Amino acid sequence: TEDARKEAKKIIDNGGSPDEAAKFIKKYGLSEDQARELVKRAL
């Protein structure tokens, strides 16, 4: 979702790792793979 993508970008912009961002956005109901893909797109 757009919200999850924004959250991921915010985490990374604040110095978080892509892994942290992926873990965080899994709470939106995404699978591990979906979360990682979304983080990649957010970069």
Rank of each mutant, 00 (worst) to 15 (best):
G29H: 03
K23R: 12
V39P: 02
K10Y: 11
A21L: 15
F24G: 10
R36P: 03
E7T: 09
S17W: 06
S17E: 03
A4Y: 10
E37R: 05
R5E: 13
R36V: 10
I25A: 06
S31P: 03
L38A: 07
I11T: 01
E7H: 08
N14D: 10
D33Y: 09
K23Y: 11
L38H: 01
P18I: 13
R5F: 15
K23E: 15
D33N: 07
K6C: 13
E7A: 14
E32Q: 05
E37N: 05
S31Q: 03
E2F: 11
L43H: 06
K26M: 15
K26A: 13
D33L: 09
I12W: 05
A35D: 00
G15I: 02
E2Q: 09
D33W: 09
E32F: 08
K40I: 12
K10F: 12
S31F: 00
S31E: 04
Q34D: 09
T1A: 12
A21P: 01
K9V: 07
E32H: 05
Q34W: 05
Q34Y: 06
Q34A: 10
K6Y: 08
S17P: 05
I12K: 04
F24P: 01
D13L: 13
D13G: 07
L43S: 05
A4I: 12
A35K: 00
K26H: 08
F24E: 13
K10T: 09
Q34H: 04
L38E: 07
A21D: 05
Y28K: 01
Y28D: 04
D3E: 14
Y28Q: 00
K23I: 12
A22I: 15
A22E: 08
E20I: 05
R36M: 13
G29M: 01
L43N: 05
N14S: 13
G15V: 01
G16H: 03
P18A: 11
A42E: 09
K26I: 15
Y28T: 01
E32R: 00
N14I: 07
S31Y: 00
P18F: 14
A42S: 05
S31M: 04
K40L: 14
D3K: 12
L38D: 04
A42T: 11
A8N: 02
E20N: 04
I12P: 03
G29Q: 02
K6M: 12
A22G: 03
E32W: 12
E2Y: 08
A8T: 03
T1N: 12
L30G: 01
I11L: 07
P18D: 06
E20V: 06
T1W: 15
I12C: 07
E2V: 09
I12S: 04
R41G: 12
K27R: 10
K40F: 12
K9T: 05
K9W: 13
R5K: 13
S17H: 08
A21V: 12
E7W: 12
L30F: 12
K27S: 07
R36S: 07
D3A: 14
E32C: 00
K6N: 10
T1G: 10
A21I: 15
A8H: 01
K27M: 08
I25F: 04
L38Y: 02
G29I: 02
A42K: 02
A42M: 15
R5V: 15
I12M: 12
A42Y: 14
E32D: 14
E7I: 11
T1I: 15
S17V: 06
S17G: 04
N14A: 14
R36I: 12
G16L: 07
V39N: 01
G16A: 05
Q34S: 04
D19P: 00
D3G: 08
D13E: 13
E37A: 08
E37W: 03
L38T: 06
D19A: 11
A35S: 03
R36T: 09
K10V: 06
G15D: 02
A21W: 15
K9A: 08
R41D: 14
A8W: 09
K26F: 07
G15Y: 03
F24A: 15
K27T: 05
R5W: 15
K40V: 10
E32Y: 10
G29W: 00
K27H: 05
R36Y: 12
K27F: 03
I12Y: 05
R41F: 12
R41L: 15
K9Y: 08
E37F: 00
L38I: 15
A21F: 14
A22H: 06
Q34C: 13
D3V: 13
F24T: 10
E20F: 09
E20W: 09
A8Q: 03
A35T: 05
G15A: 02
Q34P: 00
P18L: 14
Q34N: 04
K9E: 07
R36C: 15
I11C: 10
R5I: 15
A35V: 12
F24C: 14
R36L: 10
I12V: 06
D3N: 11
E37H: 03
L43Q: 08
K10R: 14
R36G: 04
R36N: 10
G16T: 03
N14H: 09
R5S: 09
I25K: 03
A21H: 03
D3T: 12
E2H: 11
V39H: 02
D3R: 14
A4R: 02
G15P: 02
F24N: 07
S31R: 00
D19C: 12
F24L: 11
R41K: 13
I25Y: 03
D19H: 09
K10E: 10
K23F: 10
F24H: 12
K26L: 15
G16D: 05
D19R: 08
K6F: 09
K9S: 05
E37Q: 08
T1M: 15
E37P: 00
A4W: 12
A42V: 15
G29N: 06
I25G: 00
D33S: 10
L38K: 01
I12D: 02
A35G: 02
K40G: 07
E2G: 07
Q34M: 08
A4K: 06
V39L: 09
T1R: 11
D13N: 09
I25E: 03
E20T: 06
G15Q: 02
E37S: 04
K6D: 06
K10M: 09
G15N: 04
F24Q: 12
S17R: 05
K27D: 05
N14V: 05
A42W: 14
E20Q: 09
K9D: 04
D13H: 08
E7S: 07
A4T: 02
A8R: 00
T1Q: 12
K10P: 01
Y28C: 13
T1P: 11
A22M: 15
S31G: 04
K10D: 07
D19G: 07
K27N: 06
I25R: 03
L30R: 00
N14T: 08
A22T: 10
E37M: 04
I11M: 05
Q34L: 08
G15S: 01
K9C: 11
G15T: 02
K9P: 03
F24K: 09
K26N: 06
R41T: 13
D33M: 08
E7N: 05
K6G: 07
A35Y: 08
I11K: 03
I12A: 02
Q34R: 03
R41P: 06
Y28E: 03
K23P: 01
E37G: 00
A21T: 05
E32L: 11
A35W: 14
L38R: 00
L38Q: 04
Q34K: 05
L43E: 05
A4C: 15
E20R: 04
T1C: 15
L38V: 13
R5T: 10
E37I: 04
A35F: 10
A8F: 08
D33P: 04
E2P: 08
E2A: 10
R41W: 15
G29D: 04
G15W: 05
K6R: 14
A8P: 03
K26Q: 15
G15M: 02
K6E: 11
V39K: 00
V39F: 09
K6Q: 11
G29A: 01
R41C: 15
L30W: 04
D13V: 06
A21Q: 04
K23T: 12
E7R: 04
E2L: 10
Y28M: 09
A4F: 08
Y28S: 01
R41I: 14
R41V: 12
D19L: 09
E2T: 09
N14P: 02
G29L: 02
L43I: 11
D3Q: 14
G16I: 06
I12E: 03
A42C: 12
A42H: 07
K27Q: 10
P18K: 05
A22D: 04
I25S: 02
L38G: 00
P18Y: 10
K10G: 06
E7Q: 10
D33T: 09
G16Q: 05
E32M: 12
R41E: 15
A21G: 01
D19Q: 11
R5D: 06
G29V: 00
A42L: 15
K23M: 13
F24W: 11
E7F: 07
E7L: 10
L38S: 01
A8C: 09
D19K: 07
K27L: 05
D33C: 15
G16K: 02
R5A: 14
K40N: 13
G16R: 05
K10N: 08
N14M: 12
L43P: 04
K10L: 10
V39R: 01
S31C: 01
A8G: 04
A35R: 00
G29P: 01
L30N: 00
D3S: 11
